[in-house]
Design a protein around this nucleic acid. Sequence first.
DNA 1: TATGAATGAGATTTCATTCAT
DNA 2: AATGAATGAAATCTCATTCAT
Lengths: 218, 218, 218, 218
Amino acid sequence: MPPNANRTAAARKSARKPARNPPRKKPEPRDPERTRERLIEAAAHTFNKVGYLGTDTNRIARAAGYAPGTFYKHFTDKRAIFLEAYLLWVDAEWRKIDAIVGGGRKGARNRLVDRLTNEILRHHQRWGGFRAALVGLAATDPDVAAFRIESRKRQMAWLDQLLERLGARPAPPARRLAVLLTFERLCDSVAWGEASALGIKRSEVLAELRGTLGELIG
Amino acid sequence: MPPNANRTAAARKSARKPARNPPRKKPEPRDPERTRERLIEAAAHTFNKVGYLGTDTNRIARAAGYAPGTFYKHFTDKRAIFLEAYLLWVDAEWRKIDAIVGGGRKGARNRLVDRLTNEILRHHQRWGGFRAALVGLAATDPDVAAFRIESRKRQMAWLDQLLERLGARPAPPARRLAVLLTFERLCDSVAWGEASALGIKRSEVLAELRGTLGELIG
Amino acid sequence: MPPNANRTAAARKSARKPARNPPRKKPEPRDPERTRERLIEAAAHTFNKVGYLGTDTNRIARAAGYAPGTFYKHFTDKRAIFLEAYLLWVDAEWRKIDAIVGGGRKGARNRLVDRLTNEILRHHQRWGGFRAALVGLAATDPDVAAFRIESRKRQMAWLDQLLERLGARPAPPARRLAVLLTFERLCDSVAWGEASALGIKRSEVLAELRGTLGELIG
Amino acid sequence: MPPNANRTAAARKSARKPARNPPRKKPEPRDPERTRERLIEAAAHTFNKVGYLGTDTNRIARAAGYAPGTFYKHFTDKRAIFLEAYLLWVDAEWRKIDAIVGGGRKGARNRLVDRLTNEILRHHQRWGGFRAALVGLAATDPDVAAFRIESRKRQMAWLDQLLERLGARPAPPARRLAVLLTFERLCDSVAWGEASALGIKRSEVLAELRGTLGELIG
DNA sequence: TATGAATGAGATTTCATTCAT
DNA sequence: AATGAATGAAATCTCATTCAT
């Protein structure tokens, strides 16, 4: 009779597996730049799904297909990669926005506003969890807060240029800030399921968004 | 029993750190209701200062003048006391708002709007850290999210009644939500130091707030 | 609007109840002897159900209808009440055994053996959990071990007398011990569900028990 | 059993051992399989010495030469390692028994019975504390109980084969169980110091053991 | 560069026990 | 005698981080 013959199911369960880590899809070893990117992408998705608190660095590394130690070869700590992921996320948004606005389509204003609004809302819906984590962190972490301010400044300037480009009359900072925050907050509201919980449809929110922007653009 | 086991609250306090809140000169012991309240208050302040992540239950208990175990006599875990603190915080806000609106001052609309705006902004400034923690948590924790929705529904109904009371014409849900969120987000922006970092003065934000409300009220 | 109107079910759950302790069935206050008994009984049942490890003194007190502090007015610690409960349990067994043997029924030997066997098995089945806890504790706690030895000595003497009384020839200590332990262990085996898990019926074990005793008695 | 084996919880608490146990001169690091084994061995010895209740996971880890966290890399909790240690212990016993029986020495029956008896008794004496902890746990924990049953089944089958091999006539399950339990219980009795406290010598118990087995084997 | 076992500080949580009423 | 809120030491368990390979 083999010595281990009587291990019950329960016992087998309690005995940790030898931790075969799933071999990363693309081996493609030794490309530090790619490694870094993969880690950031994995982090962004994890933060988005389970929040800052719920994300642990070992998991990020594993999700990206690496061992825990690799994480610290590329980032000093969890906060650092959060910041990088934030950057990635903001960049992605701007790329899309630029494509819409700068894409130079001379189409009617309404068409532009529609496309912008749609894109931004979609973006928020995709990154709702990350945005919430960001808010939670920024209140405590000065670096994250500074990052956020920087982002906002860029946004303010962009809006200023947009108005100029569209021939609308310039708006004072407080006005622009109010519009941006309204936009952001309404999008979050949809992303976080608040609007739908209140029985408000996506299309109704979209109408509000268009109204807010339209009012500014004139 | 170790010799120090029965030190008074005062003695315990003096042995501790820079001693934030001076805990009960009069020990006023054995009042579980008060204990509970004190724990909630301590929790609210701690969450507000260092966020959800930065708060630990032992610290809450010590800040309230109790031993770690006492916490668990009153709350199942950190989330539970967060929810209670949230309740306390929302209640406080509503009490003040009711005092302003229901206070029945027949004064001009402008006066009312001013006082409301001021009060709400002040409240947000006081609880900015807590609000940020709330956003971060709600994205992950369904109970916190549900709590928040409930709060929002109340707010929507309140605004509806306010409009009726002021003789303004009723606004559809999406409109009301947009106004509430704009209000909230602008207040947070001030509370979180965003506005000032962008060189926007409190008074300018207040003007935006008044405008937003004024537009609705007509 | 009532301030607490929006407490969700989850929040209410997390808020501990004011801990109405169930008013003891029989108030019958201030009878320390009765209090002591009730505590021991409650302890015996709790130990029997959830083991020594799983039993906590506050629970014992509450189960008996008292407050935690009362426990320590009557017993120095958990071990002490375990010992007392053990005593109670052993006494109960002996009372029954005496009733059977000393009951003086002049009936045939077989009848006596049957009744004894039945009674002891029933007793073990009732106190199986307690017995297991006892074994676990005795290995670590010298007082419990001493108690157990004392009990065993009594048992050995009793068996000696029984043999004499029945006119059987005396058996040496090792023999008597072996019979007692076999008896005990087979009863435990039934009580702990071992026998039934092996597909062995209670009646088959009873036959073994009778055989063991019969052999000794001749 | 070592002198301090049966200290109570109170005693253990008061006597904090300075006792930095010098961890592994040769670090022999990074072999998870060895780490796991070392942890199990350390756990087995600790359980054996101070019982399940008296053992804490940090201590197991330290005793094996590791930090507390390492424990949880290999086992989900204390119960899990107990089960594994049980397995180790049972395996060790079977290996020895197989060596004796299967060792194929064609010597007289008496010789075989003697060696078996001796070995089993020695084994129980070595693992007396562990066995007691096992009994205490099995009454409460279904997984431990299941493990134990599994072990017993194996034992029953083994005995069956032994009888066949020796040319003895087969015994019904209840009979075999009775013999096994008697054997086990008498060995425990010696291991736990019961026999000696009753003035019964090891050799006398051995005689009983031999008798029990001899009767079965014929 | 990447690995991953190991770390250990620290947070969470329990519960035997105390003491003022 | 009984109470029960409070205690706090100690155990359980997590996870960001390190380091030898």
